[in-house]
Amino acid sequence: MKGEARMDLLSLRCFQVVARHEHISRAADELRVAQPSVSRTIARLESELGVPLFDRRGRRIRLNQHGAAFLRRVDRALGELEDGRRELADAAGAEGGSVTVAAETLLTLTELLSRFRATHPDVDVRLHQSPPDSMARRLRTRDVDLCLASQPLTGPALASVELLREDVLLAVPSGHRLADRQGVDVAALDGEPFVTPSRGHWQRALTDQLFAQAGARPTIICEGNEPGAIMDLVAAGLGIALLPAMARDSRPHEGVAWIRLQAPGCHRVLTLVRHKDVYLSAAARRFADFTVEHFRRAAPSSDGPLGG
């Protein structure tokens, strides 16, 4: 290190955001500061540390090995300070508070949120729609307090509780050749056009898994990042899709017929996940407890409270 480093919290926060985006202008937008200011802050921090934190090629930047090592420490340090702030707010008896929740699809949260807000109107709930491959990182960096995940999250120090285990059904247009069937196997779907979210979403992962077990590949004709639109696309006759029983029960659609897919593992397991090394505020604990109880009343399947 060249001389004595004088890095401050604002510089570290700036580095953290730039490292996440690997893009100066996007980081500046999030930080709500001018782009040249972000560039100067990163340059000053690198000078203080005596090593480059990013590799630069033209206007593109990539976190290098020094930056990745430093980011792990910065995430930990800033996270501990944020945990301290939350813990002191709880100790001081601050009312209300906030909780930030990520879910793959917000449909899962609608009824839960309505009931939670009715009983806890003083708690500010913030939502993020997030793919599972970013959830573990967002929990670790305190971007979110809790995640509702429909596929297993991997990573150290994650604690989860099962909320719901439900069937996944085959949705087809009402006039489809299979619409009157009670059940079908995967072989009967060979060549059928599938509507599915893009890779990373649980429906796509399950579709690929079931077809792989049958030694086949699905014919994907539409994929995107709007899971809530899939039922409407099926009703419009665009293709068929795998959807949870919750979608059928919460939003009936006359243009869709539902069929049981006769394949092992054709179900969804919804879990509530937190990071055990991150302080969970009083507001977040209230939301977690409420969520477990909400799904327990709907369909008893929980295996206990969140660890930690």
Rank of each mutant, 00 (worst) to 15 (best):
E162C: 09
G191D: 07
A5S: 14
G97F: 05
M7T: 12
V123Q: 03
R56V: 13
A205W: 10
P252Q: 01
E226N: 14
L49P: 00
A235V: 05
E166N: 07
Q35A: 14
D190F: 13
D208A: 01
A229L: 15
R56Y: 04
A68C: 07
S150M: 11
S47H: 14
G304N: 09
A34W: 03
E82W: 12
G67V: 03
D249H: 12
G3V: 04
L71S: 01
T271N: 14
D75A: 08
L45G: 00
E162D: 06
C266T: 05
Q129C: 05
L12V: 02
T41K: 13
A284L: 07
A118W: 11
P252R: 01
A94E: 15
A136P: 08
A283G: 05
F290D: 09
S302C: 15
Q182S: 15
P52Q: 13
V234R: 00
E293G: 10
F116D: 04
R268A: 11
P197S: 12
V195S: 01
G191V: 01
T108E: 11
G67F: 00
G237D: 00
V101K: 04
V74F: 03
A68H: 10
P132C: 02
A241T: 07
R59V: 11
L113A: 00
T207W: 03
T100A: 04
H128R: 14
V186G: 00
R32D: 10
L189F: 06
T41L: 05
A102R: 03
S160H: 11
S134A: 15
W202K: 01
G237N: 01
E111Y: 10
E162V: 10
E22I: 04
V195L: 10
P121L: 06
S302K: 00
E293L: 12
T141P: 12
Q65T: 13
R32E: 15
R56F: 09
H267P: 11
V33M: 10
T291H: 09
L169N: 08
I240M: 02
L12W: 02
T219W: 13
Y279T: 00
I230V: 15
T108P: 12
A27I: 06
L113N: 08
S39P: 13
F295H: 04
L78T: 00
P156T: 12
